[in-house]
Design a protein around this nucleic acid. Sequence first.
DNA 1: TATGAATGAGACTTCATTCAT
DNA 2: GATGAATGAAGTCTCATTCAT
Lengths: 226, 226, 226, 226
Amino acid sequence: MGSPTFDLPPDTGAPPARRSRRKQARPGELLEAALDLFVSKGYAATRVEEVARLAGVSKGTLFLYFPSKQELFKALVRHVLADRFAEWSLELDNYQDDTASLIHYCYEVWWTRIGATKACGLPHLVMAEAHNFPEIAAFYRQEVVVPGNRLVERILQRGIDRGELRAMDVGYGTTLVLAPLIFCAIAQSSGGLCLPNPQFDVPAFLRLQADTLVRGLAPDAQGALP
Amino acid sequence: MGSPTFDLPPDTGAPPARRSRRKQARPGELLEAALDLFVSKGYAATRVEEVARLAGVSKGTLFLYFPSKQELFKALVRHVLADRFAEWSLELDNYQDDTASLIHYCYEVWWTRIGATKACGLPHLVMAEAHNFPEIAAFYRQEVVVPGNRLVERILQRGIDRGELRAMDVGYGTTLVLAPLIFCAIAQSSGGLCLPNPQFDVPAFLRLQADTLVRGLAPDAQGALP
Amino acid sequence: MGSPTFDLPPDTGAPPARRSRRKQARPGELLEAALDLFVSKGYAATRVEEVARLAGVSKGTLFLYFPSKQELFKALVRHVLADRFAEWSLELDNYQDDTASLIHYCYEVWWTRIGATKACGLPHLVMAEAHNFPEIAAFYRQEVVVPGNRLVERILQRGIDRGELRAMDVGYGTTLVLAPLIFCAIAQSSGGLCLPNPQFDVPAFLRLQADTLVRGLAPDAQGALP
Amino acid sequence: MGSPTFDLPPDTGAPPARRSRRKQARPGELLEAALDLFVSKGYAATRVEEVARLAGVSKGTLFLYFPSKQELFKALVRHVLADRFAEWSLELDNYQDDTASLIHYCYEVWWTRIGATKACGLPHLVMAEAHNFPEIAAFYRQEVVVPGNRLVERILQRGIDRGELRAMDVGYGTTLVLAPLIFCAIAQSSGGLCLPNPQFDVPAFLRLQADTLVRGLAPDAQGALP
DNA sequence: TATGAATGAGACTTCATTCAT
DNA sequence: GATGAATGAAGTCTCATTCAT
C-alpha cells in the first residue's frame, strides 16, 4: 500500500548539517523537486537550477546525480511509475466482492494513490513530451499503459465470467474504464481547465462515472442503439 | 459543415515565387504551420523560424503578422477553436431525433470535425501550457470550455425533459459526456500513448462509448450502487 | 535672412493629390522629418520607416532618394548646415556698432536662427555620432567648426583692433565665444538635462553670458590672477 | 582625491586563467569596459558582447552581473558619477582662499578628476540618450545636475558675501560657471570636434575661461551693456 | 514612380552544462 | 563531494534594405 510519492527520509527535527547531510537521499529529494516543478510548469519551462534550489542543493550537485535534464526527466518517470501494478495486481487477486464494487473500489484507490497526489501530473507530462522523448514514451507504454490495461482486462473478464457484465470486446472495454482516470489526471494537472467550474468535485464525479459505467455495462441494460 | 482547418490557397502546382506578396493568405498559412508544429512538438520545442519555414516564408515575415510567439499561439487557439459552437448550437436546435441518436451524432460529428483533424491536438497543448499562459487558459475556458458545457447541458436537459434520460445532476453529467472526447483528443495527439495498441479504432471506441453512456444514463438502468 | 529650417513648398491650402504630389519636394520633406526624429530620438533609435511615415511617403520611397540610413543622415547634416556662414559673414562685414553690441547681436541671432529651432539638435547629434561617422565629422569640422571659428576670430580681432577688447590669444578667445552657444544647443536638445531647472530662460542666460564675456574681455578688466 | 575610474585588480603580469572565478572584481571590470565602449561608440552601437570581451569574460557572464544592457548603463552612470559631490562639498567647506582662486581651483580639479579621464564622456552620453531613457535622465538630474548646481551656488554666494563678486542672479550664475565644464567634457568626448584645431590645449583654455569669468563677474567690471 | 510585403543578418537574452575552487 | 561562476549555443525579435507589383 505504497505512498504515491517518494519516501522522504525521516524528519529528525534538527536542521541537517549543511554540507554532508543525507547524501544517499539526494536523488530522491531531487526527483521530488523535479516532480513538483515539471508537473506544474512543464518540461521546458522548468529550469534545472530551480529543481536544485527546491531540493536544497546547488545546480552543480544536480548534475552529479543526473547527467542531463533529459536524464533527470527519464529518471523521474521511471521512479514515479515503477512497481505500482505488481501491488495492485495482488489486491485484485484477493478481491472478493462483485464487479460493481470492484470498479468503484478501483476508482477510489486510483484517486487516493494517484489522482489526489502530485503523481497525477505525470501522465499529462509524459504525453505532452512523448514526441520529444520517444524513449520515455516507449517506457511509459510498456510499464504503465500495458500493465494498466492488463489489470482492467482481468477485472472485466472476471465480471463477464461472473455474469455481472454483458459480453463485450474486452480490449475496448478497458479503455472505457481507464479513460475517465486519464481524463481526471489531466483535468487535475491542468488546473481544472477542462472542467466546467472550480468547485467541481472530482471524487464525486468519479463515483458518478463508476456508477454510470457499471449501469452501462450491465447485462440487462436497455437503450442501446440498434 | 465547415472544415476544421484552414482554407489553403489553391495549389497551382508551381512552387510559390520567392518574395511573392500574399498578404491575405499569409496569416492562414502561418497558423496552419503553427498548428502542425505546436501540436506535434509542443509550444516550447517549436521554433518560430520552423513555423515560418513550414509556411514558406522567412522568420521576419512571421513577425509581420504576429507580434510574438505567444501572440501566434493565442491567435491559433482563437482561430481553431472559436466559432465552432455557434454552428453546433444551431444544429442542436434543429435536431429532431431521440437523445440516444443525438449523443451518437455528437460523437460522430466531433470525430469528423475535430478528432480526426490536427485541431484535436490543441486542447492537449492548451492544457499543457495553461500554467505558463494564464491569459490563454482564461480565454480557452471562456471560449471553449464554457460553451461546450452549455451545449451538452442542453442536450442532457432535453433528454431528461423528454424522459429519455434519468434525472441527474446535469453539471456532472456534461463532464460524463465530454470526458471521452477530451480523452480521445489527447490519445490522438499523443500518438496513442494511452491506448492499448496501435490498431485501436477510435471511432469504434467512440461508438461503444456513446452506447455505454446512453445505457448508463437510461431511466431504467439497473445496477447502480446503493 | 534665411530660415533656420527648410524651405517648405508654399501651402496651397488644398490637400495635395495622393500619389504624384510635389515630387521635387520629397527630399526636403524627408530631410525635415529626419531632422525631427534624429534630433529627438538619436540616430540609432530612429527607424527609417518612421522618417518616411512622418514625411508622408512609404519606406520604399525614402530609399529611392537616399540609398541608406547613413546617407540620409549625411545628407541631413549637409543640408541643414550648408551655406549659413556666407550669409553671416556678409552681415559681419556690414556691422557698424561696437564689439559689445556685436557679440550681443551674434548671440541673439544665433538664438533666433539656430538655438530656437530644431536645427540646434544637430551639433549634439553630430558629436554623438562622430566616431561612427568619421566622414560626417570631417565635413562638420570643415563646414561648420572652421568657418564658425573664422567668423568669431574676425569679430575678436576687430574688437582688439578697435581697442574694445584686451589683447588675447584669438584662437582660444573664439572658443570662449562659441562654447556658450554649443552648450546651449546641447542643453536645448537634451531637454534641458544640464540646466538647473525647467524654467531656465535660455535667451536671458545668453544675454547674461554675453554681458559677462564682454566684461571679462574688456581692456581694463580687473581681477585677473597674478 | 579619488580616482574617477575604477580600481582594477593588481596586474600580476600573467594572463588571467580561463574560467577564473573573480566575483568581486567582475562588476568593476565590466563597468570599466562599458565606460570605454559606451563613451567611444555610443549606447546603441555598443554590443554587450564587446563589453564582455573587453572585460575578458563571455557574454553570459555579463548577464550574471547586470540583468540587461540598460541596467548595465544605469549602473555605469551611478558608479561613475555618484559619490563625487560629497567629497567636493567637503573640500569647499575647508577652502580658505579668495573666490578667484577657488574658481580656478575648481576648474583644475574638475579637469584632473573628470575632464582628463574617460568619465568625461558620460555626460554627453547621458544627454544623448536622455530621450530614450527617461529614468536615467531623472537619475542624472537628481544625482549630478542638482548637486553640481548646489555646489556652485555656494561658491558664488560665498564670493558675493565676501565682496569678491558682483551681485547677480546666482541661479543663472551657476550655469555660467558650469557651462564651460560641460562644453569641455563634450569637446573631449567628441574627439575635439567642436574645437578649432587638434592642438587645442583644454587645460589652458580652462585657465583662460576661469580668468575671463572671474574678470566678468568682478564687482568693478566695466563694459556692461546698458 | 511608389508601394509595402518580404527578407535575413544581427542584436539581446536565456539556460543547460562545465569546471576551477 | 559540493559549489556556483563561467560558458556559449540557441532562441526570440528588430529593422535596414530589397524587390515584385
